[in-house]
Design a binder for these strands. Sequence first.
DNA 1: GGAGTCACG
DNA 2: GACGTACGTGACTCCT
Length: 988
Amino acid sequence: MSENLKKAIGSGDHLILVDGSSYIFRAYHALPALIRKADGLPIGAVSGFCNMMLKLLREQINGGKATHLAVIFDSSRITFRNEIYSQYKAHRPEAPDDLKPQFALIRDATRAFDLACIEQEGFEADDLIATYSRQACERGAKVTIVASDKDLMQLVRDGISMYDSVKDRVVDEAVVIEKFGVPPEKVIYVQALAGDSTDNVPGVPGIGVKTAAQLVLEYGDLETLLAHAHEIKQPKRREALINFAEQARISEKLVTLRQDVPVDTPLEDLVAHDPDPRHLIAFLKAMDMTTIARRASQVYDIDPTEIEPDPRMLPGGEGIVWKAPVRRETPATDLFVSAAEPNAKAASNKVDAAQSAAMALALQNAENIRKLPFDHKKYQTVQDVEQLEKWVERAREVGVVAFDTETTSLDVMQADLVGFSLAVTPGEACYVPLQHKSQDADLFGDGFLGGQIPLKDAMAVLKPLLEDESVLKIGQNMKYDWVIMKRYGATIAPFDDTMLISYVLDAGRGSHGMDELAKRHLEYATIPYSQVAGTGKNAISFQRVDLDKATAYAAEDADVTLRLHMVLKPRLVAEKLTTVYETLERPLAAVIARMEMRGISIDRNILSRLSGDFAQGMAALEAEIYELAGESFLVSSPKQTGDILFGKLGLPGAKKTATGQWATPASLLEELASAGHELPRKLLDWRQLAKLKTTYTDALPGYVNPETDRVHTSFSLGSTLTGRLASSEPNLQNIPVRSEAGRQIRKAFIAPAGHKIVSADYSQIELRVLAHMADIPQLQKAFADGQDIHAATASAMFGVPVNEVNSDLRRSAKTINFGIIYGISAFGLAQRLGIGNGEAANFIKQYFERFPGIRDYIEDIKKTCRENGYVTTLFGRVCHYPLILTGKPQERAAVERQAINAPIQGSAADIIRRAMIRMDDALKEASLSAQMLLQVHDELVFEVSDDEIDKTLAVVRKVMEQAAEPAVSLKVPLVVDARAAQNWDEAH
DNA sequence: GGAGTCACG
DNA sequence: GACGTACGTGACTCCT
């Protein structure tokens, strides 16, 4: 509807109100079940609707008879009537599968006709129709209700008539009397008595329409009848009316349409007008309604062949009502200025009626997608540029394309591109081989197979598509493909990532790999990679896979990804997780991709010298260990170590693991060492050196990329339950820092000449998040005053002034503070503090007495988790715990602890994510060349040019400290410590 | 490939 | 009265 179309209604005007909701049910059953050929989308009822609307258009609008017109829909199943009677419409069977998607399509159709599409939360279409009818009637206008719902018959009177479009007849007073036996104004009494089984209106048992009409005609209205119920002669009828009087009154309320709905859209906005015929015809063509399109084009004298189908309505399109999702990456600055949102989740996910209609469309489409079969024979192998150009053209038409690369390696920084696949609609997918080799290298040498587009030519066609702002690229773990394509000179944007969407929707409900998602959401088992490339030592590179097999595998991946997107993306809106995805996930992927590509410099000399030192130390310790044990054994074997310690030497404190062997954890060896035993101490020392050597000093040099001479870790965005990142191959989030020997390894992480390493870490971020979320005034004040939080906790718990807290008390308080974050237990605390269970329990009791808000908070989390099955972070990230209600008591307790920890750890993770997303732009804006290299949960590591250190420190600090704003205003300050040095150890 | 251990936040 | 006992990761070694 155009904004400027307004016209007050009055005498001589004619208002047409179309009941969209009841129409679709009637049409569905009355008309043949048509489908759209392209994707099997059911369109029978919608096509009937369009036929009817075109008729209205021709006769009433184009013909100039109607002055005002609107199509009215039910908003949701829940209305005020459910408050009166919870069972109202409760037994309505669910709509058939091939009807469901048409609810949303019919709204799209209404928009295509450029008609007002009215629905209102809490009210049925009938109430809106009753309200508009009354308003128009009062102002002297004529009203026609286009509907086939008997409930609307109560509205018929002078000036208000009904037209049943399915039966093509006018419903006047005579028809109403024929149906109900009473004139329209008494219909509600008949309905109140007779009830209605389809709407589950109870009525009075034993009284049907005929009896009801007879009674109403005799007594005039329901109340009079009930007042005289005892006079009725028939005993059964009399008893029923007396016993079910109240039920009749409720029924009356249910069937009486509200004529006083505070309508959102005023009557004068419903001006009838012609649509833009080109839009209408484009819609009809996209929906496969060629006959109707032709008729529409005749009305407006337009050549329909000139008009392209509306891409929004084509398979994979986003629909008309539901505006296409933001097809650009959220710029970091948006996070600073936008969204004056008190509550990130609630505010930014407002769903208006139009959106919800479109949401329904998308969700129903998703239902269809689930069951579409896969046909590998339909996939095309693209072997020349012309074909590729056609696919790119198709992608532009549709506006959405799934994209997947095939390469020679999982190591994204070493992988060579072998080919790529595209999918534009379900089943419409191709594979473009680029650098495949013959399966028999000896015979044909190392050259590439024929029948492949030269890489350069392919990139010339592909790159503009990947960078086309108006085409959404969909990937599964897009970070991988993003880096690959970046290395070949193309920047993928905008993009969506099905793995990340799944992560946002279903964290805690399973993993987010493509095979698993295909199984879960498409009921489809993907071709295993092993079936294509073999397994074990017979495995071949994807480069050597023959093109038919490669096409089946690769095109399927793109096809699956596209379908997953169709199934999952609408759920973001429906489940109000769009903001989480748009502000915490999607923009981070490219940020992380760039970090991974940069890598970090290490000094291999330091590491090899340390390896030598550690080897020497281990050898010396081994000799002593054998001496003390009285025999030699494999020190690296926990089993043999256990046998020596507890079997042979009989040391105390022995416990067995689940598998029946002796457990030899460091904590136990520590205990034994403190008790004066020499061997456990030596073992501890040996283990420490072995760990440092094998995991770090020996292994890290092997990760240096020969081309960049740097180490490129891989950060995974979707592998934790809480929103944290994880780092692997190598894991650079667990580089030693706690021991002196370990810190030597950090010294090997260096900045190149002319640069420094800058490390910036949040001080106590999780405790600050807890102080905010649990709303603990004392803790908030301690943080605001810049106090030592552990000393402050000790002071509050043990009742001593802060400056008199000794190191023992502070250590206890610190352990308790951590314990709280992890879901404390007396036993765990006792273990860690080396005190008795009882004493630990007392500490906890003391803590909760000092900070009762914490206990309330913990109880609250547990309660909401039990009720919802999930918990959320400050920024709306959801973490599911399906086992919170099942499982054995101790398993449940474990889940509860996870649920307590998740909002704290997760909110902190969200905060640093926000900082990272803004960081690159903030640095650029300050004309700084600093490069973000690593994230270690509460720390960011940068490489900074010597002459920009101070400015960079200031920007980094500011971005990190303000990261929660404006979505959340924390009640505690965030404090960041940042330092520059030549290596990571000294910067930290 | 699971279990045990230990590096980090 | 028994039971297992702090949250989140990844890598290495042993051993079946």
